[in-house]
Amino acid sequence: MPSLTRKEVEEIALLARLHMDEAALARMESELGAILEHFSSIAAVDTTDIPPMTHAVPIELPLRVDVAFPSLDAADALRAVPKRDGDLIVVPAIIAGSGE
């Protein structure tokens, strides 16, 4: 397994939207490096033809009957919103296309 570079740490931090200062990034680099190093043993395990286990207990997806229940009151839905304008949630301007 490749070892972790500082650049990768920064890329991951951006992907995960985590701001960290220089010192935190440096610490992260060495701690994650040590953890990944410790985990490198898994690469040698032969898992050919072993289906990945996504759920601990095998069950099928239950399906919900299509009935609409009353929604939360907008007041309850919005009570915890840090910044809003009437019933709308306010965020800094979305630069076109910074998401999907």
């Binding site: 919900r64 009935v67 609409a68 229940f69 929604s71 939360l72 907008a74 919005l78 019933d87 709308l88």
Partner: peptide
């Protein structure tokens, strides 16, 4: 299970899962 309606007042069709 929250409902679907075009033009409903903002954030009036939510529940814990939608939020």
């Amino acid at each position: 299970a929250s409902g679907i309606e075009f033009g409903a007042s903002p954030n009036s069709l939510t529940d814990p899962t939608v939020l």
